[in-house]
């Protein structure tokens, strides 16, 4: 039986035009088989990791995974695996909740969820180490600068001494440099002083 025998008659004409060589047909078959195998493995993986935890909802994205989020507080699975203690507690939970002790209520909560809201939102203190390491990095940069100053850079040119800069200024004023908005505009040439 050829592969196109099971198709309706109307589709045979179409498929005949796009016939593949037997070789590429086989290659395609092998590829499709591999793809579907990978898909099966991927589909099984999230479930294979949760042990016998109960899947109780859709969760964040349909994955059977647990995550504590304040904006999405009900994850897809319970936090703890089922064990006889919890099973017994769940049987008791079916009765009057007034008969549960505080300890049992807490055990039930912790079986379903890992962290309470206040624990999720509790400050971790991580900012301290971030701040400390950042400042250490910044001060290290200062040390590099000082080291460069000592061992790498040549001394500043002598044109940066006070007297040479004064002389430079005097010369600019004498040349009437930048007379509209610059130094010369501030200089009163009649008085021979700043305006």
């Amino acid at each position: 039986m050829s592969p196109s025998d099971h198709l309706p008659a109307c589709q045979k004409n179409n498929t005949a035009e796009m016939a593949l060589t037997p070789l590429s047909r086989n290659a395609l078959k092998v590829m499709l088989r591999q793809v579907s195998k990978h898909q099966q493995i991927a589909a099984a993986s999230s479930l294979s990791k949760i042990g016998n935890r109960e899947v109780v909802g859709f969760g964040l994205n349909g994955d059977a995974s647990y995550i504590d989020r304040v904006d999405f507080p009900m994850p897809a699975i319970r936090f703890k695996e089922n064990n006889p203690d919890i099973q017994a507690l769940r049987e008791k939970e079916k009765g009057d909740w007034g008969k549960l002790t505080l300890e049992e209520k807490k055990a039930l909560y912790r079986a379903s969820f890992c962290q309470t809201f206040s624990e999720m939102k509790a400050p971790t203190g991580e900012w301290k180490s971030i701040m400390g390491i950042t400042l250490m990095g910044a001060s290290f940069a200062v040390w590099i600068y000082l080291w460069m100053k000592l061992f790498v850079y040549s001394p500043l040119p002598d044109t940066l001494t006070e007297e040479k800069m004064q002389a430079q200024l005097k010369r600019m004023i004498d040349l009437r440099a930048n007379p509209i908005e610059g130094y010369s505009a501030q200089w009163d040439y009649e008085k021979g002083d700043w305006k």
Binding site: P73, M74, E93, W97, L100, L108, Y109, A111, S112, F113
Partner: peptide, 8 residues
């Protein structure tokens, strides 16, 4: 019968 869910 889900007490934890109520508290959550």
């Amino acid at each position: 019968n889900d007490y934890a869910l109520a508290v959550r």
